[in-house]
Design a protein around this nucleic acid. Structure first.
Lengths: 174, 174
DNA sequence: GGGAAACGGTTGCACCGTCAACTATCAGGT
DNA sequence: ACCTGATAGTTGACGGTGCAACCGTTTCCC
C-alpha cells in the first residue's frame, strides 16, 4: 500500500505550492500598490479594464462575473462598490429587462487612464519583469494547458485585457 | 508618450492573468473536493501537513504563519478552528511563555493519514497531471525566480511538504 | 533592579467573497 | 392566456482574512 511513488510526486506537489505562494506574494504586492495609489483593489481595477475594452464600454453582469471568475453575487458587489464611487453605472437593458449592464462612466474611464500604467508597471515589476520573453511564453503555455485540463480555458477571458493601451478614441461600434 | 511597447507587455500581462486564473480555478476545485470529503479547507489541510512534518509534530504560531504565508491573526484563527475539532492543540512553551505551539493531536494525525492521499490526488488531477515532469521542473524554476525577485523565496517554505509520505514512525528528534 | 523597546499571540472590526434563497423577467408548451 | 421552468440579478447570513490595537512576556541596557 505504498501508493504512487512519493519522491516523484513531491516535486509535482511543490510546483503547486510554489504557484500558491507566487499568487499570494505577487497579488499582495500589486494590490497594496494599487490600493495605496488610487484606493482600488485588483478586482475593481480589472472590472474597469474589462469594461473599457468591451463593446460600448459596458458588460452584462453575467459576463462580467464570467470574465472575472467571480460568482454572480461577487460581481454584484464589486459593481456596487464602483457604482458608489461613480466609476461605473448600472443600465437596465431595454431588450431583456432582466439584464443589467455595468457601464463605465466618464470618471471611471478617466481614472482608468491614470491607473492603468501603474498596474502595468506593478505587474512587470513584481512578476513578469523577473522573466524573459521566452519564459513568459512557456509559462503561459503551461498554465493554459492546466486551464484547458480543467475546462476553464476561454479565449475571451485569457486573450484580451490591455490590448491597445489607448481606447479613449474610435471605440464606436467598429 | 507611447510609453513601453504595448503589444509586448500585453503578452507579459496575460501571463499574469493566466496565473490568477489558474490559481482561482485549481484551488477552487481542490478545495471543493477536500471540503466534500473531510470538511477541511486547503489552508487547514496545510496546517496539519506542516505540523506533521515538523519536529515533534508542532510549530510555533509564528512559524506556522510564516509557512502558510498568513498573517498572525490568520494563523490564530485557523488553529482556533482546528483546535475546536480536536485536530490540533495549543501548548504554551515552558522556555518562553509568550510562545504557543500548535501541536498535532492523535486524531489530527489520524485524519491526516486519511486525507493526504486525496490531496495528493487532487493536486495531480487538477494541476500537475496536465504537465510533464519537465514542464513541472521548468514551472518551478520560473516561479522560484519570481519569488526570489520579491524576496519571498524561502527554502523551508518551498522545499518541504509531503516529503516521505509516511511520517508516522521514526519522527523522534533525529 | 527598573524602564523601554521588541516580540509572540489574540481580539475587535471591517472587507471581500460565497452560497442559498429570493424577485423579476422571459421562453415554451398546452 | 396560463402555468412551468429557465435565466439575470440582488440580498442576507456567513466564513475567512488582514490590520491595528492590545496584553503579557522577554530582552536590553542603563
Amino acid at each position: 500500500m505504498e501508493g504512487s511513488s512519493p519522491g516523484l510526486s513531491a516535486e509535482r506537489f511543490h510546483a503547486w505550492l510554489n504557484l500558491l505562494q507566487t499568487y499570494s506574494v505577487v497579488s499582495g504586492r500589486i494590490e497594496a500598490e494599487l490600493d495605496a495609489a488610487h484606493g482600488l483593489s485588483l478586482a475593481e481595477h480589472e472590472v474597469l479594464i474589462r469594461l473599457a475594452q468591451a463593446e460600448g464600454t459596458r458588460l452584462r453582469m453575467y459576463d462580467l462575473a464570467d470574465l472575472l471568475l467571480l460568482s454572480k453575487s461577487g460581481a454584484t458587489r464589486v459593481v456596487d462598490r464602483l457604482e458608489k464611487r461613480g466609476l461605473v453605472e448600472r443600465v437596465v437593458s431595454t431588450d431583456d429587462r432582466r439584464v443589467v449592464y455595468a457601464a463605465l462612466t466618464r470618471s471611471g474611464a478617466a481614472l482608468l487612464v491614470k491607473t492603468r500604467p501603474l498596474l502595468h508597471d506593478s505587474v512587470e515589476r513584481f512578476f513578469s519583469g523577473h522573466l524573459s520573453d521566452d519564459e513568459v511564453a512557456r509559462l503561459r503555455a503551461v498554465l493554459r494547458r492546466v486551464l484547458e485540463g480543467n475546462d476553464a480555458w476561454a479565449e475571451h477571458r485569457c486573450a484580451p485585457a490591455l490590448e491597445g493601451a489607448a481606447p479613449q478614441s474610435a471605440r464606436r461600434s467598429g
